[in-house]
């Protein structure tokens, strides 16, 4: 009853927030969850930087320099880091650009479209630069666990977190393990 709550941080890198929506999809288990964990940096709390945490959940792949900084901040602070969903694990949909030349991509979007005035690729230092390719998170930092799915079902995320919180090696059975 009086066990200290585990601290959990979550973020979406090059993702669509679909995995976060799936997390919210655990419905009434949310009450159980907030009874057992406290959220640190997360879109749910709007905390901007991560402090020391037990569990970090990463949605999305790594497409720009900011993603690298955020991911490294998570790795530095989280004892257990989990890649959640197809984009984090493989690069996913955003990685479709990996087959294209980055220059051609940016030119197409920012210069060669009609109805654009003063067409130029934005160079504001506020904007994070794009990496040449979209990388899966485990190619940039050490990842401890993977939850596949696009998105993984709420049920899968709940089972996984339940195991993790209880100290069991997380194990998704056949029914919960899916790649679409």
């Amino acid at each position: 009853m009086d066990k200290p709550k585990l601290r959990v941080a979550t973020t979406s890198l090059a993702g669509c927030f679909g995995c976060h929506m799936s997390l919210l999809d655990i419905d009434e288990h949310l009450f159980e969850l907030v009874g057992r964990v406290a959220f640190d940096r997360s879109p749910l709390t709007d905390i901007k930087h991560c402090g020391p945490c037990d569990i970090g959940l990463i949605e999305g792949g790594v497409c720009n320099s900011e993603n690298v900084h955020v991911l490294r901040e998570f790795r530095r602070n989280c004892k257990t880091l989990v890649a959640v969903g197809a984009c984090a694990i493989t690069g996913g949909l955003p990685a479709q650009r990996n087959h294209l030349d980055l220059g051609a991509c940016l030119q197409q979007v920012y210069r060669f479209r009609d109805d654009i005035e003063d067409a130029a690729v934005p160079d504001d230092p506020e904007l994070p630069l794009l990496l040449d390719k979209v990388y899966p998170v485990h190619e940039v930092v050490r990842i401890d666990y993977f939850i596949p799915g696009c998105p993984p079902s709420g049920e899968a995320i709940w089972k996984f977190l339940g195991d993790l919180i209880a100290g069991r090696t997380p194990r998704l059975g056949h029914a919960l393990l899916r790649f679409d």
Partner: peptide, 28 residues
Amino acid sequence: EFEPAFDLDAALADARRITGRDDPAAHL
């Protein structure tokens, strides 16, 4: 510790060239 199999700063080179940027935030 873990190291990526590729050079992250080099992976920004295309974007630096395209944008003409070379400020600190344009590097890793």
